[in-house]
Amino acid sequence: MPSSSDATPRRAWIRRLRRTRLTIPDWAYGLLTVLVLLWLWEYAVDHAWINAYRFPPPSKLARTFEALLERGFPRGVTTDTHFKATLWRILKGYSVAAVCAIPLGLFVGATPLLERAVAPIITFARSVATLSLLPLAVAWFGVGEFTRVFLIAYGCFWIILTSAINAVQGVSKQYVFAAQSLGASRRQIFMQVMLPGSLPRIFAGLRVALGMAFLVIIAVEMIGTIEGLGALIMEARNFYRTDVTMVGMIFIAIIGFVLARTLAWLERILLPWVTDLEEVQR
């Protein structure tokens, strides 16, 4: 590298360009592809290479987006309502599952004999596809809010329960030994060692469970209601409005992204001591 003292303005400019080229952030590449794809899509529809009804072009989607925010869909149901309905259902089912599963999981995990006795039940209950329970839940509780919240809670419950059990069992024995040698009682060890030691894994389970809640809610909103984002995209199909379905999917992506980020943020606030907050994929 030449020293900066003899650099002419032109060479300094080139150097700066080089440096900026090296620091193009990764998301810029991604954004570039997205823009190119959107443009290609628009172009292809313009030239009638692909069907505008099946693949409504980005410009049309943008107008629909605006219209949805202003007037909502179907008539009389605002986008606001859809968002609130979906969020509220997720929140109810998810928090019920967490509130039940975390204490239970901690207890089961700390009681080895009990853990062995219930392990097959948990394994099987986890394997039961949550959505296969939909007809049964409908037969039991009817097509209503309770059924939807119940299914979300069911799906999340077993994931959180398993993670809480594994979390307790995964707390390193050396922490227990250290606490014992410092004279802590069994109760103190549970509250001050087992509990904080298992929080990171419990949070990992909560992240996976959020993905599950999201999967279930979209499916259960497709029947028996016109409120909620799942209902929005299904209703749009009944009216042959592919554009509305697609915008609805964008809404879903946004809400999913925001929820996942909120949870990650919460984790960083609550567990500042955790070394690597690795992203667990759904």
């Binding site: 999967l215 979209i218 497709m222 609805g248 999917m249 992506a253 999913g256 996942a260």
Partner: peptide, 8 residues
């Protein structure tokens, strides 16, 4: 972030 079922 779009769950597979939202593609139905």
């Amino acid at each position: 972030p779009v769950p597979p079922l939202a593609w139905i």
